[in-house]
């Protein structure tokens, strides 16, 4: 990738406060400036309570900033209403969670189909795409399994397939290996690298693990609601 690539995320002076106007008013983010270009594999690291989850919610269009501007693919997210935010989450963001968050009593295929269903894709088309995605993550033979019939690593692979369903601008992964043993975690990280290299997916990885962060192109360290270190895109990443 080059520095000429498209800017996917452009955050300027993002401030997030809770309990506004009350005695216990709390400022979680103190003016975050962050740019992410297409094709980056970025790690956001920080301790618990550093504000990285809040930043993730902001990036994932789950929440609006109190102050500041957030452009995602050139669109100002901070001014959108609930319906428009839903559409952004549906089309532009692919979430991968620590606890997988597959929908219970719904098989792997249906879980992967879900974002496409909410996007209004015809049934046949989304079935075909879901099968392809499960193939990519190596879960094609488990398509009709319920989440409770899958191991942690298998669940996470289905979750990644689901995140990729609508070809999002960003794959947003929140501690994706946090609930897995190291061997399975390794497999999931390998899958991220594969998606990054083969599909050119922009990945934002939120983690508190310095080892995982070292594998990424770029590390942004956050502490007390501010970015304290940004390595920029490194060509000598560990992986």
């Amino acid at each position: 990738m080059t520095l000429m690539s498209n800017v996917v995320i452009s955050m300027r002076n993002i401030i997030k406060r809770y309990y506004i106007g009350q005695p216990n008013e709390l400022q979680i983010l103190n003016g975050i400036d962050l740019d992410v270009t297409e094709g980056e594999f970025l790690a956001i690291v920080g301790q618990s309570g550093s504000g990285k989850s809040t930043l993730m919610n902001m990036i994932g269009a789950l929440d609006r900033p109190t102050e500041g501007t957030y452009f995602l693919n050139g669109q100002d997210i901070s001014t959108l209403n609930d319906v428009e935010l839903s559409r952004i989450r549906n089309k532009e963001i692919g979430f991968v969670f620590q606890t997988f968050n597959l929908i219970a009593r719904t098989n792997a295929l249906k879980n992967v189909e879900m974002p496409m269903m909410y996007a209004g894709m015809p049934r046949k088309e989304r079935l075909k795409r879901a099968e392809e995605l499960l193939e990519i993550v190596g879960m094609a033979d488990r398509a009709d399994h319920q989440p409770n019939e899958l191991s942690g690593g298998q669940k996470q692979r289905v979750a990644i397939a689901r995140a990729m369903a609508n070809k999002p601008s960003i794959l947003l992964a929140d501690e994706p290996t946090g609930a897995l043993d190291s061997k399975t975690g390794r497999m999931i990280m390998d899958l991220f690298h594969k998606l990054h290299e083969e599909e050119g997916t922009t990945i934002v990885l939120i983690t508190h693990s310095p080892e995982l962060a070292e594998e990424c192109d770029r590390i942004v360290t956050i502490s007390d609601g501010s970015i304290i270190n940004d390595t920029g895109v490194r060509l000598n990443a560990v992986h």
């Binding site: 994932g60 609930d82 989450r89």
Partner: peptide
């Protein structure tokens, strides 16, 4: 509740 949260994260609108 959790399922509703997941669905919303996947892009389900309130109306859905």
């Amino acid at each position: 509740t959790k399922e509703i949260g997941i669905r919303k994260a996947l892009g389900a609108q309130n109306s859905a």
